[in-house]
Design a protein around this nucleic acid. Structure first.
Ligand SMILES: [Mn+2]
Ligand SMILES: [Mn+2]
Ligand SMILES: [Zn+2]
Ligand SMILES: [Zn+2]
Lengths: 140, 140
DNA sequence: AATGAAACTGAGACTCTGTCTCAATTATAT
DNA sequence: ATATAATTGAGACAGAGTCTCAGTTTCATT
């Protein structure tokens, strides 16, 4: 389903459809939640793929550009991504103590952003809101 | 002024007031805008300080914990910090066409976030909101 | 002022994330 | 089938940040 869109994106850019890209896209599409590049690498290798770390790192920017994934947090000294699917938009609260991620969605928050954009004559396309703090488990 | 607060924070934690911490705090307080750990290191060394990179990296978490500085963005694969002063907070709209950055502040937006945090029993400390889109100059 | 325990320091080795190089391979248009 | 340009894996490399350890410094207690 979404794989075809990525293939179309690749072809349209004059790039090539390779086994490595195919394996990476498939893995991303079937995996849930947030992931780091190296986790993707380990998962693919554990499934018998011969893909290299370099190809992972090369493919990720393409996945982002195609809209299939988005960078979500850079808490831990390395990047994290997640699958983008329609109607799944949410923002994040991230506990700086335990790393727990709370996903939340607020229609009023979205609408407020829209009106702020209108005020600046800015056409908002996407946004990333991360609230850093301490979750209830860690607040002693 | 703010230095005393940091000294009090250090003493209260049972830690020690050292020349190195003193030099680092002074530099942070007098420098303007965003800074990276290594920039701090280079600046101090250029002023004759013998402080080590290790001490910079050891002291930064203390500065953050004391509330004197805050991590602002992790754009470039390394952390950036800035002095915390009241009334300086703002968020960003970023034009993906021309790169223009619009800084904005909305009290209702801040309050809405606070109430969303409360709902999750999350103690929000800081946040980062970036709205990507197209500015009025580029919207044709 | 002297003592001593605990905290602190610099140097540099180390880890980890991410990038780059390059020769060999592969996809795709003709 | 051929030519061309994109892609690959391996591993060297780079940069940020952490850790170790032996020697030093703070500071509360005498
Ligand atoms: Mn998420
Ligand atoms: Mn804000
Ligand atoms: Zn937590
Ligand atoms: Zn613009």
């Amino acid at each position: 389903m979404e794989k075809q869109e990525f293939d179309a994106f690749i072809s349209k850019k004059g790039l090539k459809l390779t086994r490595e890209r195919d394996e990476i896209v498939s893995e991303v599409l079937c995996c849930q939640g947030h992931f780091a590049p190296d986790e993707l690498f380990v998962q693919l290798r554990s499934k018998g793929s011969k893909v290299s770390r370099a190809s992972i790192y090369r493919t990720i920017p393409l996945l982002v550009e195609s809209g299939l994934i988005a960078e979500v947090e850079r808490t831990d000294k390395h990047a994290h991504y997640e699958k983008v699917s329609k109607n799944s938009h949410h923002d994040h609260m991230i506990c700086t103590v335990c790393g727990r991620v709370i996903e939340f969605y607020s229609k009023p928050l979205e609408r407020l952003q829209e009106s702020l954009c209108k005020r600046e004559n800015f056409k908002g396309v996407r946004h990333c809101l991360e609230i850093m703090g301490v979750c209830e488990n860690c607040d002693g």
